[in-house]
């Protein structure tokens, strides 16, 4: 019963929307009926341009998350194990983290040029901080006794990192990855709206330019699907990577 409630509510809402749009109770220009959006979506899925655009978006997203997330992960570990590094960098991180990354876009453009690298750089910057902060928190919440065990059994350097620091902080790191991917997706789309010829963000911009709102909603559905898929993927990855987090 409970399981059917969300889809039933969704369907009821869509039906109401459809009727309202067709009857003219709401502006069909800004709220086109779901059936029209669905048709547009199907047409989109059949076009080569759409898949090329989706490919561009995914490429930027993946590259940004790999580069920024990777750097955040590494620095998170290092700051977690090295107190001097933590003390030195913590204020800087705290100050830079909340900066709106999009505001830096023109500067990144001047530094890196107008190609893909500047877009990826901004996505990477967005993915960097949640990954860094969560990994750092993950390392810091490792049970002090586990550090003692590691020290007592002579764990140092790479072995310490691989066997204790990495798995000990992994649950938080995966949370960080999830936040990083979500943030990176938002920024990827936003950058594409600003300056890309191809990609889902560019499609949204064009939808506004032409006021083809079905295109807008259809693209938003795709982006929502992307968010859902990436979260689903990360959840499976979490289950796979954290076998010790068995259900109690």
């Amino acid at each position: 019963m409970e399981r059917w409630l969300p889809p039933a509510l969704l369907l009821a809402g869509l039906a109401l929307w459809e009727v309202a749009a067709r009857a003219g109770w709401i502006s069909a220009l800004f709220f086109p009926p779901p059936s029209a959006i669905t048709l547009t979506l199907l047409r989109m899925l059949g076009s080569v341009d759409f898949w090329a655009g989706l490919g561009s978006t995914l490429m930027r997203l993946t590259a940004g998350v790999l580069i920024g997330g990777g750097a955040g992960l590494l620095l998170g570990w290092l700051m977690g194990v090295s107190r001097p590094l933590r003390v030195a960098l913590a204020p800087l991180v705290a100050a830079l983290h909340p900066l709106p990354k999009l505001a830096l876009f023109p500067i990144v453009l001047v530094i890196l040029g107008i190609g893909e690298s500047s877009k990826v750089a901004l996505v990477a910057l967005t993915a960097f901080f949640p990954m860094l902060l969560n990994t750092l928190a993950g390392v810091q919440q490792i049970d002090p006794t586990h550090w003692e065990v590691a020290a007592n059994y002579g764990a140092t350097g790479g072995k310490l990192l691989r066997r204790v620091v990495l798995p000990g902080s992994l649950p938080m790191t995966l949370t960080g990855l999830r936040l990083a991917v979500n943030g990176a997706l938002v920024v990827t789309i936003a950058i594409e709206m600003l300056s890309a010829r191809q990609g889902l963000g560019a499609t949204i911009w064009l939808a506004w330019q032409t006021l083809r709102t079905e295109d807008l909603y259809a693209t938003l559905v795709v982006i929502g699907g992307l968010g859902l898929a990436s979260n689903q993927l990360l959840e499976s990855a979490t289950r796979l990577l954290l076998p010790w987090k068995g259900k109690p």
């Binding site: 023109p106 600003l194 300056s195």
Partner: peptide, 19 residues
């Protein structure tokens, strides 16, 4: 090739040869 450029960097992009 038409390259979309932010206003803030249009002049710089031309001078530096990016466009």
């Amino acid at each position: 090739t038409l390259t979309p450029l932010d206003t803030s960097i249009q002049g710089e992009a031309l001078r530096s040869g990016q466009v």
